[in-house]
Design a protein around this nucleic acid. Structure first.
Lengths: 186, 186
DNA sequence: GAGCAATCTTGTCACTGGCAAGATTGCGCG
DNA sequence: CGCGCAATCTTGCCAGTGACAAGATTGCTC
């Protein structure tokens, strides 16, 4: 597979998505170009359009993939909220390109059914972690706790990716995240 | 001022920055075009280059402006960490365009001296709020607390702007932020 | 093996960023 | 006062991009 010879590429859709991740990871969202991806895959400049329609379509596919990956990794973290938070940050760092697309809905089609489904799977995974906390009882408290946990993990991940954090936090995102997330008082 | 007549615009730099904020606010970062800004200001397509060099230069100016504004608004929140957090979120919502540029350093010149200075002013304002907390004593604790506070406020703001939060949080960002930030246990 | 749908190509257009060269204007300095 | 200079803005250009249309090629199905 991934045979690029002949008129038909064979696995173009997958190849384009992979190339897109590379580009975003290395040169940022703004550097993403359908024509560049086509060149990398060895196809004509208009080939990507067939699989994704347009640039937003490509990013929709990336975001969907990302939410599915996130749901998986959150679930793998088990029933520990702190571990889930660390997993969230870790996901953002290891899948930077995915993460940066996922939370920029103006770049893709946020009303895509597949995307919505994937996002809900990730959301459900997060919520199920929070539900394991000894709750105050009222569902409103669980909501608030979930929001707080999500916010602090998301904020830390975002600041880390933006390079906005001071050097003294070190270079291990998991360790640094754990120290900060603990502050929430799980 | 803001007289657009004649060969010389008179206040082009300011006009371009204002137009850029409008565009970003309404149509997102990707819609930002120097030529469009030039048209809005009634000047030729190459006029913006003189003031900002290139697109990154324009965004550097926006980010600098943003950090200065943020420093101001944080300082105005007084010596209350919760109030500062709410002010942070409020800033992000009211100055969405600024905020969205500030934390995307790949879009501007992060090594610009004016920008660095402005960012440090904002950073100092945040740190001074955290320092008012009854600290555990060790400076490492203050660092960790500052990071946690920044993360939760930044995360909530980011998720709010991305439209990622469930509807039940309501439509008042200040109120919603207060409920979540309180969870940090100030 | 014939037709059909999926896949990919070629060609084109409007738009963009950036550069170079030149026009216009205001301002300081003699 | 007026001269020159620097700041400001314009015109012209080129390569790259996204999107669309029309056509070529291929593999699959019946």
């Amino acid at each position: 597979m991934t045979d690029t010879r002949g008129y038909h590429h064979g696995d173009l859709r997958r190849a384009l998505l992979a190339a897109a991740l590379d580009v975003i990871e290395e040169d940022g969202q703004a550097a993403l170009s359908l024509r560049d991806l086509a060149r990398r895959a060895g196809v004509s400049h208009a080939a990507p359009a067939h699989h994704f329609g347009d640039k937003a379509g490509l990013r929709t596919a990336l975001a969907t993939q990302g939410f599915d990956l996130l749901a998986q990794e959150l679930a793998a973290a088990g029933d520990d909220l702190l571990a889930a938070g660390v997993a969230y940050v870790d996901f953002a760092v290891r899948h930077r390109a995915h993460f940066e697309v996922m939370f920029r809905p103006e770049l893709y089609r946020a009303d895509d059914p597949d995307l919505i489904a994937a996002r809900q799977r990730a959301s459900a995974a997060l919520r199920s972690q929070v539900a394991t906390l000894p709750s105050g009882g009222a569902p409103a408290d669980t909501d608030r706790d979930a929001l707080a946990a999500w916010s602090i993990a998301h904020g830390f991940a975002t600041l880390w990716l933006a390079g906005a954090l001071p050097e003294r936090v070190g270079d291990d995102p998991r360790e640094a995240a754990r120290a900060v997330l603990r502050r929430l008082g799980t």
